[in-house]
């Protein structure tokens, strides 16, 4: 099992009251799965994403990644883990302004202490993969929204992570660009990538092969599509 959450809770205190953003959830994600996470706002799906992607620590419970209990990792270990094992795709793209696509994609490699030549080589490779091999030196301002999100996906892939977390990846795009990003994510899934995607759009969630729905900090539905997998390799 790639990722296991065991009885995970996350509480926030708001004044005197405590908000249970995640309330005792357990979940297993297998390698190669494409999981969509849905639910109304405040249901806990964002908190789930933060906790599962090692951005936030759970209040209770255990998180096991690739068989290792990583619940009690400190801030530095978490940073290394995010760098090596996790790729992030955000709704707002979060690219560095006035910085070339190439440098944006190479950023995780900087923190992975890779040499400059490796950075350039890997970043080029990833931009090629998302179809932006001819836009290496364009800054975000010179790219369309869809292209910016593709740069962000290239960045998420550059360290060859175990899981890609996507938070409303099409939420900030027009329908055509959104479709392109969906196709790109499907393609990554087919090539064996594990993807966990938060979305509130039914049609976007439909591209995943497993859907979970959150409400009030709990998982209220977990359904696998009865769809034959086109490829089952890694």
């Amino acid at each position: 099992m790639l990722l296991q959450l065991k009885n995970v809770s996350k509480y926030y205190s708001l004044g005197s009251s405590t908000i249970k953003a995640l309330d005792d959830i357990s979940l297993e994600v297998a390698e190669g799965e494409f999981l969509s996470v849905m639910g109304p706002s405040g249901s806990g799906k964002s908190t789930f994403l933060q906790v599962a992607s090692m951005l936030a620590e759970p209040t209770h419970g255990q998180i096991i990644l690739k068989g290792t209990d990583v619940t009690d990792y400190d801030e530095i270990e978490r940073a290394h883990l995010r760098n090596q094992e996790i790729g992030f795709v955000f709704q707002q793209f979060n690219l560095l302004a006035r910085t070339s696509a190439l440098d944006n994609v190479a950023l995780p490699l900087v923190y992975a202490r890779q040499s400059h030549s490796v950075q350039v080589e890997r970043a080029k490779e990833m931009l090629d993969r998302v179809g932006l091999g001819d836009r290496l030196h364009n800054t975000p301002a010179q790219l369309s929204g869809g292209q910016q999100q593709r740069v962000a996906i290239a960045r998420a892939l550059v360290n060859n992570p175990s899981i890609i977390f996507a938070d409303e990846p099409t939420g900030n795009l027009d329908s055509k660009s959104g479709k392109e990003i969906q196709n790109l994510l499907s393609e990554l899934h087919r090539s064996g990538k594990t993807i966990i995607m938060v979305t509130h759009e039914e049609n976007v969630a439909a591209i995943a092969d497993r859907q979970i729905v959150f409400r009030d900090g709990k998982i209220i539905s977990d359904s696998k599509k009865k769809k034959s997998k086109r490829s089952n390799n890694k």
């Binding site: 801030e75 530095i76 290394h80 995010r82 090596q84 992030f88 707002q92 560095l96 995780p108 923190y111």
Partner: peptide, 16 residues
């Protein structure tokens, strides 16, 4: 602030 958050998400330690 957002840039710093991003850098941290991508693996920058507080020291970096």
């Amino acid at each position: 602030t957002r840039e710093i958050g991003l850098r941290k998400a991508l693996g920058a330690t507080p020291r970096m």
